[in-house]
Amino acid sequence: MKPINEMKMTFLSRSANEGFARAAVAAFAAQLDPAVDELADLRTAVSEAVTNAIVHAYPDRLGPVTLTVKLYENGCVSVQVRDRGTGIPDVARAMEPLYTTGGEERSGLGFSVMQSFTDRLRVRSAPGKGTAVTMEKYIAPRVKGRV
């Protein structure tokens, strides 16, 4: 299935960009006319994925984080958050609820929130090469047809 619209952007892994990233995705996904709750779920999930890249992928340096967002005719929004950082040695373990390597002020809930707030979550990672997190969320149609 081909997307009806697509955007890609790359920004530095500065924490100030967490708000920028979720706002950009929300503004782009607004084309599918999402409900307030659907958009809030998406913003939260994007914030988790981008924060992971900023905190874990580049622990002691700045690096690029690339966000690719695709919109589909059936109302699906696909968001990929990609980094070129350290990678995750054990993805299954990292995805366990409450597991964290981020210290005691991190809750270890990032992947659980992404999973719970979207409809599909895929994580690909290679140590030393980086991580790609892809999330899909369906936006329910509210009016007949879409743009």
Binding site: T44, S47, E48, T51, E104, E105, R106, L109
Partner: peptide, 16 residues
């Protein structure tokens, strides 16, 4: 107007 799981970390830290 927005909170992600960082808020849970903040709450747990203040609880401790």
């Amino acid at each position: 107007s927005f909170m992600d799981s960082s808020g849970i970390g903040l709450i747990m830290g203040r609880y401790r």
